[in-house]
Structures are given as structure tokens and as C-alpha cells.
């Protein structure tokens, strides 16, 4: 074998790596090593620095809903390619298909109903891992369906948002989902329904500028990035660095746009109390 074809031996690779083995998890912010089982049981919150990592939709539901009571609905609604959108590398419907395989989800939101400490709630949970939680026709439709169910069955509506904004691959139809979901919330409000909006990291763009900001009560997880424009867009527009903490949960609370910042561990209890106070 020619010397340049010989496999290179990387000493590091040969070593036992506890993070790669999956036994230990390294916190992305404070770098402390956490026993993986503890990390999962703590719903991906660092016990050391309180960093709240992203949860996928079903982890979130598991963290909130009484075991065995969640009933998912409308998971048979899937995206099409209404604009025949092709970014030159991949057609949009294939991009969606890839996201489905990667996440084992049908779309960027899971809707359904279940019990929260015995109270009946209507739930919509967004999942950032599915195309950045972007809102296209399916996300808009499912959120609207969930709101309409909440009206019909007089359930408290809870939406967990996590999104980069509208899904540009569906063009104007994505934009229209902002109006559609907001109009449904107006109906819920007129019917006397209770809507709690929970913002998680990150929630920006068209999702923030529609249903996410329309909660009777708006909750945020600690340090979540929440905004209309993304920080990069703002920096490019004004050509200056953004102040630290800008668009984070505490910033929004200081400016009057978030009612309560709730740690993941206390989320279920807080939601329960809010529903109790208002019923």
C-alpha cells in the first residue's frame, strides 16, 4: 500500500470519549458534565447553570401532560409545494420529507388535548428541529384547528412556540397563516376562552407577530430569544452591535411584553395555577 493511502490513526479517536458514548452530556453553555440520565430527567435543563436546552414536541408534552392522557389529533395533515418552490438544490416537498425522516414528525407543530393535573387542556407544541419551527400552511392550519377545538370544548388553549418565523418556501400562503391564526384567537377570546402563550427559545418573526404575542397570559422560559426581527437582521439594518440581553426573556418582561418567566421545572405547576385562578 502506498504511504499516502494508509489510514491515518488518530489517537484521540481511539480514546474512550464519555460524551460520544452517550453516558455523559456536556452543557453547551457552562461546559459542565452531566450524567445523561439526569439531563433527560431534568428535561434538558442544566443543573449547574440553569441553561434550558430545546425540547422536541413530545418531550415537551411529556413534561406537562398527565401520563397516558395526551391524544394527538390531525397528524395526517402534511405539506405540499404550492409554489412549486425549488431552491436550486432541493425541491421544497423533498426538504419537508427529509425533515420528517430526521425528526419523526409530520410537521413543525403537534396538536391535541390532554389533562394537566386533571384539568382538560388543548395543546399546540411547536418543534424547532422541524425546519426551524417555521410556519407554513400546515402549521397555520393545525394551530387554527386546535384553537377551534378549544372553543368547541371550552378548553384552555396553550401554545408552546419555537420558531424562526414564516416558511418562505410557501411564500404568501405562509404569511396568511398569521392572519388565520390571529383571527381564530379573536374568536376564542370573544367566546370567553383562555389562551396561554408560552415562548421558548427561539421565537421570532411571523410566529411572534401573530399568535405567540396574543396570549391572555404570556409566559417565557428563562433566557429565550424572542423578537420580531432576528438579531442578525437588526444588526445589518442599524449597523451596530446589539446590547447584551437584547431580545431575551428578561428584556421582554422589562419592556412589558412577557407576564411571567417560568423555569421548565415549574411550568406545569404555573400553568395549573393560572387555569385554576381563571376558572
Amino acid at each position: 500500500m502506498a504511504w499516502f493511502l494508509k489510514p491515518k490513526y488518530n489517537i484521540k479517536k481511539g480514546l474512550h470519549n464519555p460524551v460520544q458514548d452517550g453516558l455523559w452530556h456536556k452543557c453547551p453553555t457552562c461546559n459542565s458534565m452531566i450524567y445523561s440520565k439526569d439531563w433527560e430527567e431534568n428535561f434538558k435543563v442544566c443543573p449547574n447553570c440553569d441553561f434550558h436546552d430545546k425540547l422536541n414536541a413530545f418531550e415537551r408534552i411529556q413534561s406537562l401532560i398527565d401520563p397516558g392522557t395526551f391524544i394527538e389529533t390531525n397528524n395526517n395533515i402534511v405539506s405540499v409545494n404550492p409554489l412549486d418552490f425549488n431552491d436550486g438544490k432541493i425541491r421544497y416537498e423533498l426538504k419537508v420529507h427529509e425533515a420528517m425522516e430526521k425528526t419523526m414528525l409530520k410537521e413543525a407543530v403537534v396538536i391535541g388535548h390532554g389533562k394537566l393535573n386533571g384539568l382538560s387542556v388543548q395543546l399546540a407544541v411547536m418543534d424547532f428541529s422541524f425546519l426551524g419551527g417555521s410556519m407554513g400552511s400546515v402549521v397555520g392550519e393545525k394551530i387554527t384547528l386546535a384553537i377551534e377545538e378549544a372553543i368547541k370544548h371550552k378548553r384552555t388553549m396553550i401554545i408552546f412556540s419555537a420558531s424562526g418565523g414564516a416558511r418562505m418556501h410557501e411564500g404568501i400562503l405562509s404569511l396568511m397563516q398569521m392572519a388565520k391564526t390571529s383571527a381564530a384567537l379573536k374568536r376564542l377570546s370573544d367566546a370567553g376562552g383562555f389562551f396561554i402563550s408560552v415562548l421558548t427559545n427561539p421565537t421570532t418573526g411571523g410566529v411572534t407577530a401573530s399568535f405567540a404575542m396574543l396570549g391572555d397570559i404570556i409566559i417565557s422560559e428563562p433566557d429565550a430569544l424572542i423578537g420580531f426581527a432576528g438579531p442578525r437582521v437588526i444588526e445589518q439594518t442599524i449597523r451596530q452591535k446589539l446590547p447584551p440581553g437584547f431580545q431575551r426573556a428578561a428584556f421582554l418582561q422589562d419592556h412589558g411584553f412577557v407576564d411571567i418567566i417560568v423555569r421548565r421545572k415549574e411550568m406545569k405547576k404555573t400553568l395549573y395555577e393560572l387555569i385554576n385562578y381563571t376558572h
Partner: peptide, 8 residues
């Protein structure tokens, strides 16, 4: 607005 959107 309710009917706007395309899906399967």
C-alpha cells in the same frame, strides 16, 4: 382567511 393555505 380561514381557507388560505395549501396542504394534503
Amino acid at each position: 382567511f380561514r381557507r388560505l393555505g395549501a396542504f394534503e
